[in-house]
Design a binder for these strands. Structure first.
Length: 402
DNA sequence: TCTGGGGTCCTAGGACCC
DNA sequence: TCTGGGGTCCTAGGACCC
């Protein structure tokens, strides 16, 4: 298989959008975000400023940096424009995040040229049409392409030739931290075992890595280190969750304040859910305490809902159960995450029913078609309980699960 | 380094079902 | 009455990524 996978990654994305939109920022160190650095331009990185760094430390490192508040809408718009160019480049695009995607350009040789030519043209287009710098890694696998783009940054292009020798020579000298999926914890475990480079991981063998990191992570890491990565570029992956969270600072908050924040979070995320046409079945409450330890509490519905009041009710119930914990430890972050997403809206089926058995049979058939046989059993129970005057068959989206 | 906001995936125990 | 194996779903935690 030839090198046809492109990993396209926008450089210092948020900061680059700010520099694009305000010429006065070009060539200057730019920090996006106040309390925490969301993005730093390469001019700021030269002074040691990094993402996720505290704002105060960043300003100490680079006092003359321009600090700008984030403009998420501008970044979303820029991302959409860039992804449109991606999709115009290849039919097979897998978004990884707001500023990053894999493109498979296999089979485009005759129309568009060799992968390195496609990649060069993609960079030029994003630069001239959107005004943003893009780095592209090209390789035979996702893992190699991702590592290549990381090494080529900023504003670069790196092609890994597709013969086994070149790939191994490229991969093996690199530090284990370069592997996509090895973070601080895993790196520390590996270093403690004397494993520092990807080549050493490959030589260590699968059993050793499984013993160090667990079954899945160990196998996965061994496969990547030995350059086995058959993962295809997959277009149209569906999102699995949608959430909203808010840091509260160190100040103590009253229950009323916390409830107000919770309500705002639920409303914000439900607005996004409605725009996306999604329903959810599970509500996760995310908490971070005064000592920055985290906890989650979740609750599932039998059927999906897109009702704000339902989600809010569930979230409040979860929060109430945590009140003693919060009183004891303090609260520094609260978040809501919705999972088990469906595009099913949990809609009620409005059916005529006048008491005649034939009409009821017809209604039951419709319910069976739409919701499956179990819905009939539940509805029959309700029908027996409430009696034949019931005007519609409820689907009870608000009923908690087990 | 006193810490944002948005995600993904995996593990593991317990309930429950066949 | 006791026992087994296999599967799904729910909840909570954790590592990791941008």
């Amino acid at each position: 298989l030839p090198s046809t996978i492109l990993h396209a990654d926008l450089d210092a994305f948020f900061a680059s959008v700010e520099q694009r939109d305000d010429p006065a920022l070009r060539g200057r160190p730019v920090i996006v975000g106040g309390g925490v650095v969301l993005a730093a331009s390469y001019e700021a990185r030269a002074f040691g400023v990094r993402g996720a760094m505290g704002g105060r430390r960043a300003r100490t490192l680079c006092p003359h940096a321009v600090v700008v508040p984030p403009r998420m809408k501008a970044y979303s718009a820029a991302s959409r424009a860039v992804f449109a160019v991606f999709r115009d480049t290849s039919p097979l695009v897998e978004g990884v995040s707001i500023d990053e995607a894999f493109l498979d350009v296999r089979g485009l040789e005759r129309i568009a040229g060799a992968p390195h030519e496609i990649a060069a043209r993609l960079r030029a287009r994003v630069r001239t049409e959107i005004g943003l710098p893009l780095t592209v890694g090209v390789a035979r696998t996702k893992h190699l392409a991702k590592i290549a783009s990381g090494l080529a940054k900023p504003d670069g292009l790196l092609v890994v030739a597709d013969d086994p020798r070149s790939e191994r020579d490229f991969l093996h000298p690199l530090a284990v931290e370069r592997i996509w999926g090895v973070g601080p914890k895993s790196a520390a475990v590996l270093h403690a075992a004397g494993l520092n480079t990807i080549g050493e991981l490959a030589a260590a063998g699968e059993d050793v890595l499984v013993a160090l990191l667990g079954r899945h992570a160990g196998r996965h890491l061994h496969r990547l280190a030995t350059n086995h990565d058959p993962r295809p570029v997959r277009a149209g992956r569906r999102r699995r969750s949608m959430g909203s969270q808010s840091a509260l600072g160190r100040r103590a908050r009253s229950e009323a304040e916390i409830d107000a924040v919770l309500m705002a979070l639920v409303e914000r995320v439900m607005r996004r859910m409605r725009r996306a046409g999604l329903g959810c079945r599970t509500v996760v409450l995310r908490l971070r305490f005064g000592d920055y330890a985290r906890a989650t509490r979740s609750s599932s519905l039998r059927r999906a809902t897109r009702r704000t009041d339902t989600v809010l009710g569930l979230a409040r119930g979860l929060l109430a159960a945590c009140a003693p914990l919060i009183a004891e430890r303090g609260l520094t972050l609260i978040g809501i995450s919705l999972t088990s997403l469906t595009d099913d809206d949990g809609a009620q089926l409005e059916l005529p029913f006048d008491g005649r058995p034939a009409v009821l049979d017809d209604a039951l058939d419709q319910v069976r078609d739409r919701f499956g046989a179990n819905a009939i059993r539940r509805a029959a129970l309700v029908h027996r309980t409430i009696g034949p005057a019931m005007p519609t068959l409820p689907d009870r989206p608000d009923e908690p699960g087990r």
